[in-house]
């Protein structure tokens, strides 16, 4: 079962995301900022970090750039209502991005696509 770390400073956004993902069979943990996320990366050992962009302190893009350096095997997806594409961070050109508000089925499909080799159930079908 793939493990996803959701990072969002708005607890209700974090809960809504994790609710959606849990129902789809993912194991989910929630961090409310980048600092907490960095700690949980070691404890929870997620396969993928799904992070909001605009947060107090370190932004999501900065956090994910750091994840890429420290945990090269962990997948990353940025979620933000601020842009049409991921904001670029120096040295991190291939950051993937999803818009907020998200579309549940599309987001799940996207995550499954990214995680397919990791997905314990090997589910590829897309629920729309």
């Amino acid at each position: 079962m793939a493990r996803i770390l959701v990072v969002d400073d708005d607890p209700l956004v974090g809960k809504a995301l994790s609710r959606l993902l849990r129902r789809e069979g993912f194991e989910v943990a929630i961090a409310s900022d980048a600092a907490q996320a960095l700690v949980m990366l070691d404890g929870f050992t997620p396969d993928l970090v799904l992070s909001d962009h605009r947060m107090p302190g370190m932004t999501g893009a900065e956090l994910l750039a750091l994840v890429r350096r420290r945990h090269p095997g962990v997948l990353r997806l940025l979620i933000s209502g601020d842009a049409e594409r991921a904001p670029s961070v120096a040295g991190d050109p291939d950051l993937e991005f999803v818009a907020k508000p998200w579309d549940g089925p599309a987001l799940v499909a996207r995550l499954r696509g990214m995680l397919s080799p990791y997905d314990a159930f090997g589910e590829r079908e897309v629920t729309l």
Partner: peptide, 19 residues
């Protein structure tokens, strides 16, 4: 920005409920 966040979880929750 302020509307976007709540709308994102309201929308997500309602559509999850619907499904």
């Amino acid at each position: 920005h302020e509307i976007n966040n709540p709308m994102s979880f309201v929308g997500s929750n309602v559509s999850l409920l619907h499904r």
